[in-house]
Design a protein around this nucleic acid. Structure first.
Lengths: 120, 120
DNA sequence: CTTGACCCTGACCCGCGCGTCAGGGGTTAG
DNA sequence: CTAACCCCTGACGCGCGGGTCAGGGTCAAG
């Protein structure tokens, strides 16, 4: 399928798909005339990218764990190994969690300081 | 005093002061040759603007309560009238509080969803 | 008068995740 | 063959709070 249909199937736009490709998240096949061709595998990958972006990861984050995309999109694995070295994907998520926590803390401090000005 | 000294005294840069002026937060006097002249009153105003921006208000917010800047920068008033119509400054702060609360809630939801992926 | 430090305006640059043209080529049904 | 629709690349726009030139005027000291 071509870019328009792939985008519609994934709930996004052709522009976004070209953008992901430019940032190294995607590498669809090309027809002889240069048109992008997306199969079901690419489609799953697009949906994975979309859901990670919706979770607040940046494009850069997603590229950092591009090889483990399928591990992050489904339901969390029923068995939690909790052994072995942390995967790069887990580290990316952990870093993002730390950023989120810091941002939440900062906004909360601002909120409280602001609230004091109007008499709580 | 001229813009460089005023900026240094307020802990910012000449560019920032010109930017605030362009956005309607500031209106310093000009010398005959067009140079900006800042007195102690303007200096206090600059410091008030800076502290409100540091609290997370936007430039637009600050312009919205430009007439009440001095009420927001000092210590909170010891007597809390809690009567009379809410001042425009208070409404600006309230709106900003609501935005902050919404943002904190959104980030918190993202954080929790993300955390589930790595087994909390 | 000259030098050096400062000031003026106007204009483009950043990150982020795309939206939105502009100008040209491919594809497919009738 | 043509119309209608899709696709290609490249480039600019947004919002925010300024940073960073470029090209020229002003001010105070020597």
């Amino acid at each position: 399928m071509r870019i328009g249909d792939a985008a519609a199937a994934a709930g996004t736009t052709p522009r976004a798909l070209r953008f992901y490709e430019q940032r190294g998240l995607l590498a669809p096949a090309r027809s002889a005339s240069g048109q992008r061709e997306y199969g079901p595998v690419e489609l799953d990958r697009i949906r994975a990218i979309r859901s990670l972006l919706a979770l607040g990861l940046t494009v850069e984050d997603v590229r950092g764990c591009a090889d483990k995309l399928h591990l992050l999109v489904g339901d969390p694995p029923p068995v939690c190994p909790s052994a072995g070295p942390p995967s790069p994907a887990a580290r990316v998520v952990d870093r993002r969690l730390a950023v989120l926590d810091a941002e939440i803390a900062r906004l909360t401090r601002l909120r409280d300081t602001l609230a004091q000005r109007t008499g709580s």
